[in-house]
Simulated assay, not measured.
Amino acid sequence: MGTPGAELERLVGIMRRLRAEGGCPWDREQDLRSLRPYLVEEAFEVLDEMDRVAQGGPWHPLCEELGDLLFQIVFHAQLASELGEFTMADVSKAISDKITSRHPHVFGEQQVDGAEQVLANWAKLKAEERKRKTGKEGSVLDGVPTAAPALLRAERLTEKASRIGFDWPDLAGVRGKLAEELAELDAAIATGERDAIEHELGDVLFSLANLARFVKTPAEDALRMAIRRFTTRFQHIESALHDEGVPFGGATLEHMERHWQAAKAQEKALPPPLSLPRAPVSTLRLGVPHLEAQRGFWDSVATTLGWSAPRGAPDTACYDTGSVRLVFHGAERPATGATFTLEAPSTLALIRLRQVMEQAHPGSVVDSSDARLTFRDPAGLMWEYIPFAG
């Protein structure tokens, strides 16, 4: 497993090769303008995987999508490097310098009292940076992209304003403001005036975004998850109507509502994930001298790893990892001399497996830390359990 620095250097080298004479024709044709949609697309794919993780999904696909997003950053840095503007090293140095300077309570002598003071200091430090660069402090609202989704932008603007004290003192005030804006929207709807409705509806949405900030539930995330639920439920309706032979557009609202409520009930009935994502292993078939002892050991360990134990031949012990099948079979001598690596979906999974080892198989753990668990099974085979590298 390489270090982050070494792997980043490797990626920069790959990008340089792709852009060089004799490299990839497509990569050589790209410029900042043509790469814009890919950057946005990769960022949204990262968000999709973050949502799946939040719902109990595996972490590794998020690792892959973060890699795709990082590739876009390296691509842009390579374009700048070819023009003599800056390099990937300059990008890394700039953000490292910025983060260090904005955390004097970590990298300096400053003392803070909680996260709120950290944010207030952050705003002051940014203003000082702007003044050094431009001669003016600028606005505390600077830095929120105008192209960002509107709900996200509204929340970030209110957050920035709060850093200099422009904020409601408590949640009750925010909730009261939302009620006030809703009443004004009702009055505008009663007039039927389009401009007035748009104005008041905007105020309601802005107040909702501010409320989301107060309850620490980002409005953009909440809406995105609501859209996911709507899509799942509506597709359930479509599937149910198709199974019933109802022609397209032929169902009544009451009929569709029944299926909608059934979809909601089905969501609530789904149990939370009971196991962590399966851990991949690059092993096929191993001979062991004491098959029953091996089976007894791995029957308990496999459950913790999320593997299944399909029935194989009578003289084998089989475990399905989700990608390959691990098969132990009888042999006069154990297949020792190698260490097999399993990839843990999280540090929590590593801790959980260590607990199983210590309780069910005392003495099997050879080495243990927050980043690695090494254990030996009854056949003398060595195994490492390591969290995914992000």
Rank of each mutant, 00 (worst) to 15 (best):
E7S: 03
E9P: 02
E9V: 09
G13V: 01
L18H: 08
G23D: 01
C24H: 12
W26A: 15
R28C: 02
D31G: 01
R33T: 03
L35I: 14
Y38V: 00
A43L: 10
E45K: 06
L47Y: 05
D48N: 05
P61K: 12
P61C: 11
C63Y: 00
E64T: 13
G67D: 04
D68R: 06
D68T: 02
I73S: 10
H76P: 07
S81D: 01
E82L: 00
L83W: 03
M88I: 02
A89N: 11
V91N: 12
V91Q: 03
K93G: 03
S96D: 03
D97V: 01
R102P: 00
Q111A: 02
V112W: 06
A120C: 04
A123H: 09
E129K: 15
R130P: 05
R130N: 15
R130Y: 12
R132V: 06
E137S: 05
L141E: 15
P149I: 09
A150S: 13
A154D: 15
E159N: 12
E159F: 13
R163Y: 13
I164T: 07
A172M: 13
A183K: 07
A183Y: 01
E184D: 15
A188S: 15
G192I: 01
D195K: 12
E198R: 02
L205A: 15
N210D: 04
N210R: 08
F214P: 03
K216E: 15
K216F: 10
P218G: 11
P218D: 09
A219D: 13
I227C: 14
I227R: 15
R228W: 12
R229H: 15
R233W: 03
V246C: 12
H255N: 06
M256A: 14
E257Y: 04
E257F: 03
W260D: 07
A263N: 01
K264G: 07
K264M: 12
A265L: 14
E267A: 09
K268T: 13
A269D: 03
L274I: 04
L274V: 08
P280A: 10
P280D: 02
L286T: 06
G287C: 10
P289N: 05
L291H: 06
L291Q: 10
Q294C: 02
W298V: 08
D315N: 05
A317T: 11
C318H: 02
T321I: 02
G322P: 04
L326G: 00
L326I: 12
H329S: 04
A331M: 04
A335I: 08
A338M: 13
A338N: 11
T339L: 10
L342P: 00
E343V: 07
L348P: 00
A349Q: 05
V356P: 01
E358G: 00
Q359L: 04
H361V: 08
S364V: 08
V365E: 03
D370S: 09
A371R: 09
R372N: 06
L373M: 07
T374Y: 04
F375Y: 14
F375R: 10
E384T: 09
E384Q: 13
Y385L: 11
P387N: 00
A389C: 05
